[in-house]
Amino acid sequence: MALTVNGEPHPFREGLTISALMQEKRFSYPLKTIFVNGARVDRKAQDTTLLSDGDKVDVIHLMSGG
């Protein structure tokens, strides 16, 4: 029961939304783009999109900093 988030394993549970995953990972930076199995998930849908076991999630933080 695991997801792959930015190449690293992350525990999966039923009912996990993208937004909840972001909280678990403490990915609080606002400017980011999220792909699930290569498909981009719209910002507005992140609260409602449920993840499935084995999903590959890529969270691209759009920051090149300071």
Partner: peptide, 16 residues
Amino acid sequence: QHDEAWLIFMDMVNKQ
């Protein structure tokens, strides 16, 4: 100084 390159997120978080 970080103003030449700030690559932490690309490298450490995004693994790009």
